Simulated scan of single mutants.
Amino acid sequence: MDMITDAQHVAQHEAVRAQTHAGGEFLTFRLGAEEYGIDILRVQEIRSYEQPTRIANAPHFIKGVVNLRGVIVPIVDLRMKLGCESAEYNAFTVVIVLNVKGRVVGAVVDSVSDVLELGAASIKPAPEMSSAIDASYITGIGAIKNGSGDDASERMLILMDIEALMASADMGLINEMH
């Protein structure tokens, strides 16, 4: 990667981070015990999980491809990509079909929760972490209140730059993306 591309990548990620902090609508989903949120505008559809056709020599987190109305769509298991301890396939397992930089990609998650509108006041900056932890795809933390009064609890929602994650070099999808 040359310096210009690196600088452009950093600028683009900062723009997404700033956009996240302005608030908006997020699709929330579960990976293990954690709840994540992605920009609803990246989501094309949500489908039940079906066994994809395996591709030889693909990274372990790329489960294969499916034919979605004539479009061959790579299926990425986000649980494996992000290091969840287990990845069970059950009735709740779904594929979030995303449109990332003009390319259709499927992301396997444990379950989809809901669509939430978060205002800027509900979004906190992502914590700074050591370089051992790749937090570059985390754009912020959403704090969602459950209930009211003394019974109110707060749910933490990890807001993710799904476009940067899917376009990262280790995904192997980068060659087709511009």
Rank of each mutant, 00 (worst) to 15 (best):
K145N: 07
A91N: 12
P74V: 05
M129G: 12
I40L: 06
V95P: 00
S86M: 05
D151A: 08
R103V: 11
K63V: 14
P127A: 15
N67W: 00
E163D: 08
S113C: 07
L68R: 01
I46P: 04
Y137N: 14
V76H: 01
M166C: 13
P59R: 13
P59E: 12
F61G: 09
G70T: 08
V97H: 06
D161K: 05
S130R: 02
G70Y: 00
E163P: 03
E163H: 03
P127C: 14
L68M: 04
L157K: 15
G149W: 02
I46N: 01
V94P: 08
P127I: 08
V108W: 09
K63E: 15
G147L: 01
M160Y: 00
N146S: 11
H60R: 06
S113R: 03
L116M: 10
G119C: 12
V76K: 00
G147H: 04
K124L: 04
P74H: 07
S86P: 03
I75R: 03
G83P: 06
R155I: 05
L68P: 02
P59Q: 03
I46Q: 09
A107S: 08
I38F: 00
V95A: 01
N90E: 06
R42D: 14
R42P: 01
Y89V: 07
T93F: 03
A120G: 13
Q44H: 12
N90M: 00
A107L: 00
S148R: 02
L159H: 08
